[in-house]
Computed example of a mutant assay.
Amino acid sequence: MANPDMADLQDDLDLIRNAVVGAGIIATGFFRQNVKTWTKDNASPVTEADYAVDNFLKNMLTKARPGYGWLSEETADDPLRLECRRVFVVDPIDGTRGFIRGEDSWTICIALVEDGQPKVSVLYAPIRDELYEAVAGHGALLNKSPIKRRNRLGAGPVIPAPGAVHRELEERGIDYVRGPALPSLAYRLVQVATGVLDVAVARRGAQDWDIAAPALILSECNYTLEDVCVGVPRFNKREIRHGALAAMSDLTLKDDVHDVLRKVYGCPAA
Rank of each mutant, 00 (worst) to 15 (best):
A161H: 04
W106A: 06
A136R: 14
V190P: 12
K119E: 13
T107L: 07
T96Q: 04
N143I: 03
G139T: 12
V177S: 05
K144E: 15
K144P: 00
P146L: 06
E114Q: 14
L169A: 04
G179S: 07
A193W: 10
E170D: 10
Q191H: 14
G154F: 14
A134S: 11
K148R: 15
A111S: 14
D198Q: 05
Y132S: 06
L141A: 11
V122S: 09
E114S: 13
V122I: 11
D115F: 01
D129C: 09
K148C: 11
A193V: 04
A155D: 02
V135Q: 04
I100T: 05
G156I: 00
A161D: 07
A186R: 01
A164H: 00
R172D: 08
L123T: 07
E171P: 00
R128P: 01
P160S: 02
P157T: 01
E168M: 13
G139Q: 12
R149W: 08
A200L: 08
R167D: 14
G173M: 03
G195L: 09
L131M: 10
Y176T: 05
Q117V: 14
A181G: 05
S105A: 15
G179F: 01
Y132E: 04
E130N: 09
V199N: 04
I108Y: 07
Y132N: 06
C109S: 15
F99G: 02
L197Q: 10
P183M: 05
E114W: 00
R128H: 12
I159R: 03
I100N: 02
D175H: 13
S121P: 09
L131T: 09
T194F: 10
S105T: 15
K144G: 02
L185A: 14
V113D: 08
V192K: 03
L169G: 05
P160Q: 06
